[in-house]
Amino acid sequence: MIFERIRNIREDNDLTQSQIAEFLNINQRTYSRYERGEISITVETLCKLADYYETSLDYLAGRTDIKTPYSLRK
C-alpha cells in the first residue's frame, strides 16, 4: 500500500512528518493522514516524493521493490 511505503521510506531516511510536509508545502496533519491511509495522495504529490527520495512511482505504489528510479537503472 502506498501509505505504508511513504511512511517506511520517510523513516528509513530518518525524517519527520513535519520535514516532509514542509518540503511538500502542506500541513503536517495532512501528511500524517496520507501515511495513515485516511486520504488519497495525489499523483503530483507522489511525483514530488519520488523525486525527493530518488525512487520511482512504481516503488512508492508497491508495484516493485526496486528503489532505484528508472532513469538511473542500467
Results as ranks from 00 to 15, higher is better:
Ile2Asp: 01
Ile2Ser: 04
Ile2Met: 11
Ile2Tyr: 05
Glu4Gln: 14
Glu4Val: 14
Glu4Asn: 15
Arg5Gln: 08
Arg5Asp: 00
Arg5Trp: 02
Ile6Val: 10
Ile6Gly: 00
Ile6Trp: 05
Arg7Cys: 01
Arg7Ser: 03
Asn8Trp: 09
Asn8Thr: 15
Ile9Thr: 12
Ile9Gly: 08
Glu11Arg: 15
Asp12Val: 05
Asp12Asn: 10
Asn13Val: 13
Asn13Asp: 12
Asp14Phe: 09
Leu15Gln: 04
Leu15Met: 05
Thr16Gly: 12
Thr16Val: 07
Thr16Gln: 03
Thr16Tyr: 05
Gln17Met: 13
Gln17Thr: 07
Gln17Val: 11
Gln17Trp: 09
Ile20His: 05
Ile20Cys: 03
Glu22Thr: 12
Glu22Leu: 13
Phe23Thr: 03
Phe23Arg: 06
Leu24Pro: 09
Leu24Arg: 13
Leu24Met: 14
Asn25Asp: 15
Asn25Ser: 15
Ile26Cys: 14
Asn27Gln: 09
Asn27Glu: 10
Asn27Val: 05
Asn27Cys: 05
Asn27Ser: 09
Gln28Thr: 14
Gln28Ala: 11
Arg29Pro: 05
Arg29Gly: 08
Arg29Met: 12
Tyr31Cys: 04
Tyr31Asp: 03
Tyr31Ser: 03
Ser32Met: 08
Ser32Asp: 05
Arg33Gly: 02
Glu35Val: 08
Glu35Pro: 09
Arg36Phe: 12
Arg36Asp: 15
Gly37Ile: 07
Gly37Met: 04
Ile39Ala: 04
Ser40Tyr: 12
Ile41Gly: 01
Ile41Glu: 01
Thr42Asp: 00
Thr42Gly: 03
Thr42Gln: 01
Thr42Glu: 01
Val43Asp: 06
Val43Gln: 07
Val43Arg: 13
Glu44Phe: 13
Glu44Asn: 14
Thr45His: 02
Leu46Lys: 00
Cys47His: 10
Lys48Tyr: 09
Leu49Met: 02
Ala50Lys: 06
Asp51Lys: 08
Asp51Gln: 15
Tyr52Glu: 01
Tyr52Met: 02
Tyr53His: 06
Glu54Met: 15
Glu54Val: 14
Thr55His: 12
Thr55Ala: 14
Thr55Cys: 11
Ser56Tyr: 09
Ser56Pro: 08
Ser56Asp: 15
Leu57Arg: 09
Asp58Phe: 02
Asp58Gln: 01
Tyr59Ile: 02
Tyr59Lys: 00
Tyr59Leu: 00
Tyr59Asp: 00
Tyr59Trp: 00
Leu60Glu: 07
Ala61Asn: 04
Gly62Phe: 01
Gly62Thr: 03
Arg63Trp: 08
Arg63Gly: 12
Thr64Ser: 13
Thr64Met: 12
Thr64Arg: 10
Thr64Ala: 12
Asp65Arg: 11
Asp65Ala: 08
Ile66Glu: 08
Ile66Tyr: 03
Lys67Gly: 14
Lys67Tyr: 11
Lys67Thr: 14
Thr68Ile: 10
Thr68Met: 07
Thr68Gln: 06
Pro69Leu: 11
Pro69Ala: 06
Pro69Arg: 03
Pro69Thr: 12
Tyr70Asn: 10
Tyr70His: 06
Leu72Gln: 13
Lys74Cys: 10
Lys74Pro: 08
Lys74Met: 10
Lys74Gln: 10
Lys74His: 09
Lys74Gly: 06
